[in-house]
Design a protein around this nucleic acid. Structure first.
Lengths: 147, 147
DNA sequence: GATTGTTTTGCAACTATGTTGCCTTTTTAT
DNA sequence: ATAAAAAGGCAACATAGTTGCAAAACAATC
């Protein structure tokens, strides 16, 4: 990998942070790196393990909270009660997530993926219920695990 | 309320437990009561608060776990990372939940409902992904809160 | 590039949540 | 009524998440 590429990633991270009114600190750059490095979602525990040797537990909590607030990442609810986080696409802004895609949890490798091309379906609710947001999580076997 | 009605509920609870190969104990009856008394789902915290004055914390955990294992209740994933539990319909059996209904979380009263009549839609996944289970959680305003 | 005001971090202490082993009590079956 | 089996309570522990405050890092200005 060339220096130019590394520099590109750093620039991308810095501009993402600045656009969100967040100062560019080491922990924020490190955690954003983790998200950019891999395709799926990360559980809080994963992040703490990968980044936590350098940073305090509290810093990880606060960093993730800041990223959610600013619309850089979004949370994915799962059945095992461990919140997972994934990068938002560019059209998410602070406090207003446009995440109409569905999520896929692999029962084999336990990875979580955002399927950005699969749109949440319309759900017809009983009379009186008013939908604001629909969350779809599909469990199954992912592309990589399906031999 | 007549004595007969109270007796009916007790009988219903006892037979539900026996059918599931669970012995009929005070804590299990109490916790089942809580579920039957109200329409929505209960978070672990709710149950501990309502039943916990009489029972140990550990007992509540183990009771809920037993109920899930036996197919008496099922879990509902939510974005705020608090597992909620709701009664299964009668066709759920041990280890094999037929919960193809969707869940509704009210952003106003914070109650969670099983919408038993709303079936989860078919989701068309990208090539290579194989679905085993689809979970749909809708957030919005419920029937009671919509003035 | 040094200085100053603001933001972020690390630390410590704390609360909440969940788990495990062991002994006692309750339940079930006989 | 009694014995075997199951469940509950207790204590101790492990993990997860929060808060206040002082120290350090960052951004902005000169």
């Amino acid at each position: 990998m060339s220096n130019k590429t590394i520099q590109d990633i750093e620039n991308r991270i810095a501009s993402l942070l600045k656009r969100s009114d967040l100062s560019v600190t080491e922990s924020r750059r490190k955690i954003l790196h983790l998200f950019l490095e891999q395709p799926g979602a990360l559980a809080h525990g994963d992040i703490e393990r990968k980044a936590g040797e350098k940073f305090d537990r509290v810093t990880v909590y606060r960093t993730l909270q800041a990223f959610v607030d600013k619309g850089i990442i979004h949370t994915i609810p799962t059945a095992d009660n461990s919140i997972r986080y994934a990068l938002c696409k560019d059209d998410c802004s602070a406090g207003h997530h446009h995440d109409h895609h569905i999520h896929f949890v692999c029962t084999n490798c336990n990875n979580t993926y955002c399927l950005d091309d699969v749109v949440t379906p319309e759900i017809k609710l009983p009379k009186g219920y008013q939908a604001e947001h629909v969350e779809v999580v599909v469990e199954g076997v992912c592309k990589n695990c399906k031999g």
